[in-house]
Amino acid sequence: MNKESYLAQIRQLLQSLPEEDRERSLAFYAESIDDRIEDGMSEEEAVASMESPEEAAKAILMDMPIPKLVKARVKEKHMGALEIILLVLGFPLWFPLLLTVLILGLTVYLVVWTLVLSLGAVVLALGLSAVAGVIAAVYFIIKAGLPLFLLALGAALVLTGLAILFGFAVVGMGRLAVMLGKAMVRGLKSLLIRKEEKA
């Protein structure tokens, strides 16, 4: 395969993407082939040492944001009259189903973040209480004597410890939530791309 037909194949697979995105991605692959040729390979060798046009196209699509993939997917579908009628008649069925699935996914994601947020509130409360404990301790040593001072100081220390412990939990949960979000985006994208290949 020569360079032109290699790039043409990728271009064909990316047909439904906006031209700007498509050409920018293609320029990267074209540059790499040119650099291989400059490095001493023949054009055929250079193209053979690249991955297949299908793999390249899939990687480019996976890198696109979801709205662009949806748009591309809609643009790519050429529907016959029967399909359109079915789509319209089936609307009361598929639309609520689709909406439910999307909202369900979003809800799971939000619940995880709510957990992170409430844990954060706990850390804040513990931290503020610890500060209050220190202030109380200072007040007690002036006004009330040693036993109450020790009590307040001890409470402040315990609260600080708890705040630090919960702080670790918040950071861990936050990381998990971010990872979950990324995994969900990847899943949705590969769903969109797989359907595109079938079409």
Binding site: S25, F28, Y29, E31, S32, D35, R36, D39, M50, E51, E55, A56, K58, A59, I60, M62, D63
Partner: peptide
């Protein structure tokens, strides 16, 4: 540039254009 980076990394980790491109972006 892209191809030079792939060549420099090759003895340690073999990447393809399709891996490198999204990382660069």
């Amino acid at each position: 540039y892209g191809y030079q980076m792939l060549k420099d990394m090759k003895p340690y980790v073999e990447l393809s254009e399709s891996t490198l491109y999204p990382i660069l972006r």
